[in-house]
Design a protein around this nucleic acid. Sequence first.
DNA 1: CCAGAAAATATAAATAATTACTACTTATAA
DNA 2: TTATAAGTAGTAATTATTTATATTTTCTGG
Lengths: 136, 136
Amino acid sequence: MLENHKLRMTKQRQVILEELRKVKTHPTADDMYQMLRKKMPKISLGTVYRNLEILSEANIIQKLDVGGTQKRFDGDTSIHSHVRCVDCGRVGDIDIKPNYNIEAEARKVTDFEIYRHRLEFTGLCPECHEKNIAVA
Amino acid sequence: MLENHKLRMTKQRQVILEELRKVKTHPTADDMYQMLRKKMPKISLGTVYRNLEILSEANIIQKLDVGGTQKRFDGDTSIHSHVRCVDCGRVGDIDIKPNYNIEAEARKVTDFEIYRHRLEFTGLCPECHEKNIAVA
DNA sequence: CCAGAAAATATAAATAATTACTACTTATAA
DNA sequence: TTATAAGTAGTAATTATTTATATTTTCTGG
């Protein structure tokens, strides 16, 4: 998996990949850093950023840009959509398969060369939804 | 339009709104700043940021979060999608009306409370597409 | 029209997220 | 095993945006 990319499997890279695959929370780089420090206290934030970037470049993980100020990462590279909680920023999966017809539609109304599309949802995560009900 | 929001119509705000409505380029805050300085050399970047935020808060303009590192703004508040050029970051309009059925679909497969969805395209703008062909 | 309170401004400094630099370390191929 | 290219920790720098503050401006009601 890494061989084809002239990537070396360092201890750090290995742990980063392992931890990311273990969770389904779509962590930010800093979330990852906090998680990883427990296993590997000397790891540096720069290393976390660099590896997340390299791994997503190699399509071994996914970099998500779902809004908000921080990028998030997903160990699941299958094509699926995401919901972002507008209150706390938490990101969840939405298993809806993309409708590629929409790209044909788009091509009709733009002079851009369309590569792909993304469907993103916003809303409230269960926890924030509960809180909001309590307040109302 | 502004009255209902206890917003004052300052010279700066007026020019910001005017300029944004004049263009169809989905400028970043800094793009706006550069444009505005020509008309109003003493305007400050902070004022640009503050007003774009306030105006989008009041739904007089739209703040776009279409990926990339900077937020963009749109004087057109109608609901439509966008394409972002993966090469130069330019953003174009895609006039496809959202399919609200997809939100019902999403509700079936998540415990998040779904508010809304966004359809975003990526690709190449005509200029970058030309350049790519030239190289290939 | 005019005073005064609330809102907005310019400038500068602060913050947040990410990237770059550097000297040292390590994985891997021959 | 050793050379070398890739990677690391630590720190500094950059980029985008927000905040603090002292001053100025808008706009309301007399």
